[in-house]
Amino acid sequence: MSNTADPQAARPAWKDVSYGSAAGIVSKLVEHPLDLTKVRLQSQPLDRAARYSGPWDCIVQTYRNEGLKAFWRGVSMPVAGAMAENATLFVVYNQTQAILQRLYPPSTPSTPDEPAPLSIWQTATAAAVAGAAVSFVLTPVELVKCKMQVSNIAAEGFASSTAAHAVASASHAPAAKPIPSSFMRPNPASPGAIAVTRSILREYGVRGLWLGQTGTLIRETGGGAAWFTTFEVVSQWFIQRRVARGEVSAKDGGRVTKGDLAAWELMSAGAGAGIMYNVVLFPADCIKSTIQTEDELRGKGEAKGPRRGFFQVGKDIYAARGVRGLYNGCGITALRAAPSSALIFYIYSRLEAAFG
């Protein structure tokens, strides 16, 4: 059987690693403030009134109480993780495409200049496999990131409970003493990524780093399929428009490829992919964030009961806040995902076109 795999999939894996890492780092730096807002909206404790009324209120409160630097709290782990995440994603995606094309050769002949297009089901399958693989890389990164991002809520909860205890004690004392102002605001000193990781390992062992894996796996498998498939479909639509106008590749005079698309076309396809990725299985991400931040938001000194499972947490969120609770932060996430995915696909496609 002849090898009909797309030449893109035959590239050395180190190129996918390099291109994916570069794209991931840039996108994470751009998207992190909105990601922090999303996590804080998702992770509000269910047993008390919501701290934030919506995305804008969360942004305003974060800026007023913690300053501009707070929007990049926890960014070190996502930036480091973006390299592993996107490298894994593109390597597995391209290699799975090659395997599928060997198993199911396309009816259209493939040449180095004009590779045979993948079918929709091949694209979706390869993307789902890539998403499942990357979920195991992402879970520890997101666990540490989420714990760091809600440190302000956790500190406030501790401060409030401490202040309440001080008030109760003072009411029985001969002379009431003023409550220290430090009880009334979050502790500005937040643990770093290494300290959070060590704390997880110390309390739960290595397995503790994959807390929330079920939610990440569901989100990445379905979301990954939606992400890549949407990008490929929209990109092919732009290509067909150019072909219908009689255009040829500026590089070699052959058929138009993604490398010939304008920046706005690539970024439009990437933005659409990012929105689709998040909308498809957003409740899984909401449940995952709740599970990963439950210990921090329970409060210091509170007894830890049995850990709730994925579906139980989903039921609890629905019971407390309805369907809206499962989509808390969805709008800000879609807003974040559009430019982030646009950058990832644009940078990756341009590097691919320039260096093969």
Score class of each variant (00 low, 15 high):
Y204W: 11
K147S: 01
Q8A: 15
G54R: 02
I317L: 11
V141R: 00
M77H: 06
L326W: 02
T108K: 10
N278S: 12
A250S: 14
G299H: 03
T197C: 02
E265Y: 10
R198G: 12
A9V: 04
I332C: 01
L351K: 06
L217V: 12
A189Q: 14
G325T: 04
G322W: 07
T37F: 02
I275N: 03
A173L: 10
A70D: 10
R255E: 15
T221F: 07
G356W: 13
T216F: 01
A133P: 03
M148Q: 14
T162E: 13
D47Q: 11
R73I: 05
Q122G: 11
E85G: 02
W56E: 10
V233F: 01
A80E: 08
A126F: 06
K300A: 13
R48E: 15
I344P: 07
E247S: 11
T197K: 04
T123I: 15
Q42F: 02
P109A: 09
S161H: 12
R321H: 13
A168N: 08
F90T: 03
S2V: 15
S135T: 08
S182Y: 14
R298W: 00
E352N: 12
K28H: 13
A175W: 09
L36E: 06
D35Y: 09
W14S: 10
T290Y: 04
A154W: 06
V17D: 05
S235K: 13
L261F: 09
R51A: 09
E352F: 10
R102T: 12
I59V: 15
S289G: 07
F136C: 11
L297R: 05
F71S: 00
A9W: 00
T96G: 00
S289M: 09
S135Y: 07
S341M: 13
A176K: 14
Y346D: 01
N65V: 10
R202K: 14
